[in-house]
């Protein structure tokens, strides 16, 4: 397991006034090299959860195991190595850029971790490439780039630390739809080709459905669902329970599944897959393919 939470609770230390987004008895596991979606509404604790991954926040009870590190309540151990290996991208990361050239911003992380300047520069240019930007961006002022480009630079500034796990808090927020899709494709490539574990916090489930291999749904600081996309689709009530909007594709598939008896099938969620399935159903007789195949409800 690359991430393992054991009965983790967390409360912000202001006891009464603005208590929010705390965690209550969270136990969960994330497999190395997977692409995980964490869904929840504002205040469900999803961002708090994310900040436990590299010790920015430490549990008030329970234990967080990340890679070879264990963080328990009150632990004060050295976190530098953990922070290098877990890259955390906060919301609107472009607002956290501060250097006057893209290259300096990209090198900031590695230099802090003692990487020699030459190597840091190498990494900077590689990270940019991974995000689909070329070296011509290196000398540019990050504040003169477009919003989407700034966001990519900010994510690249985490990649230069060469983390094993990269965790992002609503990375697509306020981007235009095509930039959103491109960014998610890039993240998916990082997972598939570079072997990174990618964890994305989101409230837009639909756009992540093609990429996420497993899902965690948060409500009031506790995970109320952990499982595969297929299980998430079958147990759509968890999404409504968490106050999340149900994506159209899930609504459609489940309605078709009930009316046509497709509940045991692997759900089709993209427009193309559904159209294909419907055309097939029309061509041939309606026969559920995996009837009694033993797959059953894995939830």
């Amino acid at each position: 397991m690359s991430v393992h939470f054991e009965q983790v609770s967390f409360a912000y230390d202001d006891r009464s006034l603005w208590r929010h987004g705390a965690l209550a008895d969270v136990s969960l596991s994330i497999t190395p090299g997977s692409f995980v979606g964490i869904a929840g509404i504002t205040g469900s604790g999803k961002s708090t959860l994310l900040q436990h991954l590299n010790g920015i926040l430490k549990p008030t009870a329970g234990r967080v195991k990340v890679l070879d590190f264990t963080i328990g309540a009150g632990d004060k151990g050295p976190l530098r190595e953990l922070r290098r290996r877990v890259g955390l991208v906060f919301q609107f990361p472009e607002q956290q850029l501060f250097e006057d050239t893209v290259e300096k911003d990209l090198c900031f992380g590695p230099l802090n971790f003692g990487v020699p300047l030459e190597e840091a520069k190498d990494r900077a240019s590689r990270a940019l490439e991974m995000l689909g930007l070329d070296d011509s961006f290196l000398p540019r002022n990050p504040f003169h780039l477009s919003g989407g480009q700034m966001r990519k630079v900010a994510i690249a500034s985490i990649l230069t630390m060469e983390p094993d796990i990269i965790a992002l808090d609503e990375p697509t927020a306020t981007l235009d739809p095509q930039s959103r899709a491109e960014l998610l494709q890039l993240l998916s490539r990082l997972q598939r080709e570079e072997g990174k574990t990618v964890i994305v916090v989101t409230h837009r489930i639909e756009e992540m459905l093609p990429y996420a291999e497993s899902w965690i749904v948060m409500k009031d600081g506790t995970p109320i669902f952990q499982g595969t996309p297929a299980e998430l689709v079958r147990e759509e009530r968890h999404l409504s329970e968490a106050g999340l909007a149900l994506p159209e594709c899930i609504r459609l598939w489940n309605q078709l599944a009930i009316k046509l008896g497709l509940e045991q099938e692997e759900p089709c969620l993209s427009a193309e897959a559904i159209a294909e399935r419907v055309a097939a159903l029309y061509e041939h007789e309606v026969h559920p393919p995996t009837w009694g195949g033993g797959a059953g409800d894995a939830g």
Partner: peptide, 13 residues
Amino acid sequence: HKILKAQAARGAD
């Protein structure tokens, strides 16, 4: 505070 956290995540706590 949020930017400080982001800096910490990049190794400057």
